[in-house]
Design a protein around this nucleic acid. Structure first.
Lengths: 250, 250
DNA sequence: TGAGTGCAGTATGCATACAGGAATTGCGAT
DNA sequence: ATCGCAATTCCTGTATGCATACTGCACTCA
């Protein structure tokens, strides 16, 4: 009953969007493959109108690409695209950190961020780190980044960061789980956490350039994780986003 | 006849999108105002389905805002939002210039950019500059920025730049025309052109940091123009984008 | 007089029917 | 056997009808 309610509580459009996104990210729809509206209707079980809206939204999200003659296909990404998207996110988060530092934030509004930082500290202090702790880290890490972005107090910037982070391989937590399978795991986590500490410190002391630089560097940890994981061929199933890779080297 | 053909050649959705965008930018639809689908149907003359698609696309473009209970309203921007969007564009264009510089571009692919630079030189050499020349400058300037962005050879980055520049007040040429009415006009144009020259030089010499920094600074000319024009209350009609300002101080 | 409730008008979300067009397939001719 | 043309089939774009949810206003009761 509650399931039926939950099904009814969201619009058909959103439901279709979720279902299609899941199909794409899980690799059941391959990059370059055309998605016909009727096919999408079969998959999602809703009619063409909301399906169409969902397709437009997914295009805009960057998962689909419009075909000139009409319709959509699953977008394919190169490894370079992914690395660029990560650098892009780092640049935007760097800008957010700089805004926060230069414009100044009240001690009051910095409080949640510091709490989050302390929670993360608790998690990374473990050695070895349990899988549950990794999972908790992903959640807390996402929260840290969200709080940080909000400190920029810039709606247009936050909007763009959210947009870029929506790409499954560009989000701050995209490759953290993959990282859990690497031997370097703990060390990388500690480095990332040090970045977190530095950016908070920089914002507090209104060091804009430092805040910006460290967030840029921070994003490059994700790039590092990605390269390591691909090279090691370890636990590719922990990175569903890679289903979108062009000549999928799975 | 050709007009009718032109009308038929584009989809109803696109036509509706253009008509609505025009209404918004011209200020005939005021910020905060709700746009009902039926109203949009009256305005555009197409049926509700394409109108709906157009509204979704405009939301995504940033001109409209979804109302939680359904429907859309015209988005309102603060002066801060506009300045942040300009800084955002500068940051992204800076990243593009850095990519171009660091990764290196062939002499062959740098050629069109240099030609464009020379054309712009021709235009700014005039003193005083005719209105026609200003208009030509806007076109050529847009071309210069587009070519520059392409040199980054990064599809994800170009995508984001295009997206940010789609906001009427964030595009590289947004306030150039307004600038034409300012006494400082010529000087600012010369400064901008010098930035153009420097970025080409930096890319050629693979000076990534310099290329990035100058493009960031370049965008701040737009911010300067905006502030000047608003303060002087001069030719606000040359900046249709300002119709979106929150407490419109017209 | 103010607040709350009920009703009516209206807007949105969804489904489906229809028309125009693109791509593919099959057939025929060279 | 291959190439070209034509026909068919499927797909997208558009319009419209219907149901539901929301909003605003008026009336009533405290």
């Amino acid at each position: 009953m509650s399931e039926r309610d939950a099904e009814r509580s969201v619009s058909q459009t959103v439901r279709a969007q979720l279902a299609l996104r899941d199909m794409i990210l899980s690799g059941r729809l391959r990059p370059g493959e055309r998605i016909s509206e009727l096919q999408a209707v079969d998959i999602t079980g809703v009619s063409r109108t909301p399906v169409r809206l969902a397709l437009v939204r997914l295009e805009d999200e960057g998962l689909l690409q419009a075909i000139p003659s009409g319709g959509f296909m699953v977008k394919a990404f190169t490894e370079r695209d992914i690395l660029d998207s990560i650098e892009l996110r780092g640049t935007l988060e760097g800008l957010a950190a700089r805004f926060a530092a230069e414009r100044g934030v009240s001690a009051r509004s910095l409080e949640p961020l510091k709490e989050c930082l302390a929670d993360l500290d608790q998690l990374v202090r473990q050695d070895p780190i349990s899988v549950e702790a990794f999972s908790a880290y992903v959640t807390m890490n996402a929260r840290f980044h969200a709080l940080l972005n909000e400190l920029s107090a810039s709606a247009p910037l936050i909007r763009e960061i959210d947009r870029v982070s929506a790409l499954p391989f560009a989000s701050p937590s995209a490759f953290v789980m993959a990282q859990s399978a690497l031997p370097e795991a703990h060390q990388i986590l500690l480095l990332g956490q040090d970045h977190h500490r530095i950016v908070v410190d920089a914002i507090e002391n209104r060091e804009g350039a430092r805040a910006e630089a460290v967030m840029r560097e921070h994003s490059r940890l994700a790039a590092r994780n990605l390269r390591l994981a691909i090279r090691n061929r370890t636990h590719l199933e922990l990175m569903p986003a890679l289903a979108l890779l062009k000549s999928s080297a799975e």
